[in-house]
């Protein structure tokens, strides 16, 4: 049996596969999302809307870390209490644990932002009040539209 054609076929096939792997073929997949329990690099902000956004994203990180999900999964589930409950259940958490995580996450992020001077006292008070007192459904509505009605 002539083996030269077999060797050529092996070399050609391996060369192409090797080239594609070297060009990143094995890592060409959706970008991994960041761990919400690991602090993100701080980014400079000017506008008040952006500062509020940073507080809300920090709150999402805190809550997601407590629930054991990614920040992105949490944000996608913010559409309704029902979707949040499905997400919490998938991680073996009850509705009460979910609610506590959300409120604690927001309070913690507000305190931290106030300490850093990212938000003013009035905004911190309003957000703190929302985190502590508002019913869950209303709190979600507030989070979804926070930057539209909260003033720096």
């Amino acid at each position: 049996m002539r083996i030269a054609p077999l060797l050529i076929a092996i070399v050609v096939g391996a060369a192409l596969v090797g080239a594609y792997v070297a060009l990143g073929g094995t890592s060409y997949e959706p970008s991994p999302v960041a761990d919400p329990c690991v602090a993100r690099p701080e980014r400079p902000t000017d506008a008040s809307g952006e500062r509020i956004e940073l507080v809300l994203l920090a709150a999402a990180d805190e809550t997601a870390c407590t629930l054991g999900v990614s920040r992105e999964e949490l944000v996608l589930a913010l559409r309704s209490v029902d979707e949040l409950e499905v997400l919490a259940r998938s991680e073996g958490r009850s509705r009460d644990e979910l609610e506590d995580a959300l409120r604690d996450g927001l309070e913690c992020a507000v305190d931290e932002a106030e300490e850093k001077g990212l938000i003013g006292g009035r905004t911190a008070t309003a957000l703190g009040f929302a985190a502590e007192r508002l019913p869950l459904g209303l709190l979600l509505s507030a989070l979804r539209g926070a930057s539209s009605f909260l003033d720096y």
């Binding site: 077999l6 076929a9 092996i10 050609v12 096939g13 391996a14 192409l16 596969v17 594609y20 792997v21 060009l23 990143g24 073929g25 094995t26 060409y28």
Partner: peptide, 16 residues
Amino acid sequence: AILVAGGLCALGVLPG
């Protein structure tokens, strides 16, 4: 058969 396998492997590791 080896060339077919090589082509399919390359399609399985597309870099873009």
